[in-house]
Structures are given as structure tokens and as C-alpha cells.
Simulated scan of single mutants.
Amino acid sequence: MEKIIKLENVVWRRDGEEILKDISWEVDHGEHWAILGLNGSGKTSMLNIIMGYNYPTAGGVSVLGTEFGKASLPEMRKKIGFVSNALGKFQQTMNRETIENIILSGKFASFGIYEEITSEDERRAANILKDLRLEYISGKRYAVLSQGEQRRVLLGRALMSQPELLILDEPCAGLDVLAREDVLSMTESVAEDTLPLLYVTHHIEEITDAITHVLLIRDGEIIAKGPKQEVLTTENLSAVYKIPVRMHWEAERPWMSVERPQKESR
């Protein structure tokens, strides 16, 4: 069975600077990965390569059976559901649309509907609204929704095309605790349906029970990768965040605190 993602010795340079350095990583069927790292660590650069928006300077890439350089990357992208703050650049367009239209637009990877919608499409969108517990805002425009509701609508849009891989790039950024937990609950439900998931975040407490594996990246290099119980250690997290931390498990989720130096007694 083909790997969901296979990166072999990937290097990516921009303006002469090496952003990604010898990245090798595989994602198998049945695995759900979290990707952790500081801003500027290379997380977004790696996602852009996986999505086919950037081409590696060196190394091999295969995503969903598409080997880069030998097949159509636009066709590959249609198989990927994507939720990111980067979609905020389409905010003005989305604000004018109903939530149903935004979800339906996911079939065409567009913002706005410019192709024919079938009755089957409408049934699928209605089922997504139900599954994501969004029926209570049916018919409302995107502009009047809370941030948490907007993220759930974008998750519904990503699911509309029945993707073979779902990428969530910091989906809880800027949300309060209640909205965050709601989005995480929705994410767990999606992962239970066996849809492969990549979840990118700064915050280890967002790694729910549904996540099976973790990749840690620092300065364009992989620090650790593998099953989450093996990777999420105090030593590894201190290395990736460049500061002494302490981590522990609670209610099947990891939590972390910064280790502050003790003051000398006088």
C-alpha cells in the first residue's frame, strides 16, 4: 500500500538560504500526525511542499500516490482538504456568503460558487452541517459567525470534496478556550472516520487522543518523529522550543510548562 506522504532527503532553499534541511518523513494509512515547532522552524515551508505550492530544491516527494515531477500537482491538491489562517485573505468574499455556500464551494476548491451544484451536493453539505453541529446557524452569513463557528465552517468546506488527506494549519489560533475545545472535538470526530490528518500547532495541549504520531521540527531540521508517547518528552520539547520545559500527561493529553530558574536565597 502506498504511503500517504513520503519525503526523502528534502532540501528547500529560498534566496540562497536553506529553509529545510534533509527532511525525510513518511505518513502511513491509519496515522494522524501533529507537527510542532516555533515560528520560522519550517512548518509552513514543509506544508507548502506537501501541497505542491513549492518544489523541493533537492530530494523526492510523493503525496497520495503523486510523485512530484511525474504527475499533475493541481489534480493532487483536489484530494487534500486544507484549513489555515492563510484563508483569511478570502475573508471579504466569504463574509458575503451563507455558510451553506462556503461549504459547497469546497467541492471546487473555490471561494464563491461558479459551477453547477447538484441535489447530491446539497445533501452532502447538509450532512456536514449536521455532523459538525452547525445546523443552528443554517442560512446565516459567514460575517456574523463567531471565530469558532467560522473555523468549523471552514472544516466543513475542507470535507466537502471528500478528501484523502486533511491538513489543519493552526486551526485554533486566536480562539478562546471554549471555541478551541469545540474545534478540537470536531477534529477528533473527523479523525475517527480514518481520514488521514496533519495537525500543525505551537501548543501541545491541542494534541488530542486522536493524534497518533508527532513530528518535531526546529530550524528546518527534524528533531524527533514517531508515536506521540515516545516523541513528547521533556528533553525533546525543551530542544524544539529552545527553552527548558516540563511536560506531563493529563486526561490523555500532553501539557507543558516553562521551567523557570530558581532565585537564589539571600
Rank of each mutant, 00 (worst) to 15 (best):
I49K: 00
T57L: 08
I19M: 00
I35P: 00
S45H: 09
L64T: 05
V63L: 09
S62L: 05
E31Q: 15
G30N: 11
D28A: 06
Y53I: 12
V27L: 13
K43P: 04
N54E: 14
T44M: 08
P56D: 14
M51Q: 14
E67K: 14
G37N: 06
M51L: 15
P56Y: 10
I19Y: 06
S24V: 01
L20Y: 01
M46P: 07
F68W: 11
K70N: 12
V61G: 12
W33N: 12
G30W: 02
N39C: 08
S24A: 04
E31M: 07
A34E: 10
V61T: 00
A34N: 13
L47F: 01
K43L: 04
G30Q: 10
E17I: 14
E31W: 09
E17H: 12
L64K: 06
K70Y: 13
I49A: 00
H32Y: 09
Y53D: 10
L36A: 03
S24M: 03
E18V: 11
G42F: 06
G52E: 10
T44P: 08
H29W: 13
S41L: 09
G60R: 15
N39W: 10
G65S: 13
G42D: 07
G40R: 13
D28F: 13
E17F: 13
W33F: 14
S24G: 02
L47E: 02
S24N: 03
N39D: 14
G59H: 09
E26D: 14
M46N: 05
K21V: 00
N54S: 12
W33S: 09
V61S: 04
E26C: 02
G40M: 12
T44W: 10
Y53G: 01
E17V: 14
A34G: 15
E67F: 02
L20S: 02
G60M: 10
E67T: 15
L38T: 09
M51C: 12
M46D: 03
S24E: 00
A34V: 11
W25K: 04
P56K: 12
L64F: 01
G69T: 08
N39I: 06
G59F: 04
A34D: 08
N39E: 14
M46Y: 05
V63R: 13
W33H: 13
S62K: 14
P56E: 06
G52M: 12
